[in-house]
Design a binder for these strands. Sequence first.
DNA 1: TATGAGGATAGCG
DNA 2: CGCTATCCTCATA
Length: 299
Amino acid sequence: MYIDVPAFPRGHVAPCAAQEHSDAFCGFPSMPEYLSRFDMLLSEDTAWIVRKSDVLTSIDRDEELLQCKEAGQDYVIDSMAGHRALCVGLSGQTDVEDRCLEQVQSLVLDEVLKDIETACKLLNINPDPAEWSSGHVQKWLLWTEHLYRLPQVGKAFQHLSGSELCVMSEDEFRQRCSSCGDVLFAHLDIWKSGLGSEERCAEADSSCSGQPIHLWQFLRELLLKPHSYGRSIRWLNKEKGIFKIEDSAHVAKLWGIRKNRPAMNYDKLSRSIRQYYKKGIIKKPDVSQRLVYQFVHPV
DNA sequence: TATGAGGATAGCG
DNA sequence: CGCTATCCTCATA
């Protein structure tokens, strides 16, 4: 049985095209990490098969398999070519598992849509790629490149509107960018398919084409998505609103992209944070630590 | 060398 | 005017 889910299988182990980061993490959660969100739905003897998407082709299957085994789970990588299909249970008990899988599917879909909504807010762009101007396309590219640590290839897609981008085939993406065209195509594909429900779309629409976002709101949004941004900024104590900026350059870069300020850096971003001291929005925690701040009014 | 505090100034909706 | 963005000086680790 196969579940067709946008996003998960294509993204989760996308190859790390950027050489600068040699560690295993490529901006995506590992499969075990991702699946751990759904632990409650997985029975111990359930095996998962991930059909190999084109994005997965450059990953060493054995290595991936190993990674999954290390996590103490019984995951299996299917060698079938195919795309964007995730998973499915093997060992037997179909009744219960079918129900579980339906729930997983709905949860995964939900996660994906929420991720896109967040990205819309953070980028201040429309959730529907077809509506993007060439400027929006560049913004999305820049963001995606930084988020997943891909090489910067904005130039290869210059002067392209969202609708033009949407009708491009995967091969055309590859032609424009041999190093990561396939990955970018996969990411765009997630956006293209993430538009199933209209209510969400309308919702996201009103929330993102809004007012200029404030820095503290932006930081909050990043903190809400540890799965995507946890390597750059994370809570040290969520209840007290204490957070730490783990990668100052990266956070500053993302903020710069959001505000269309290519020259943004941590020096300037931190100056803005300090402006919040007297406004009572953010302060240094009682025991001051480097790169650690605290929201005065935690939610 | 990176971070932190805060003054000064300019731009912008 | 509020909210930065930018630049700068001085202090600190």
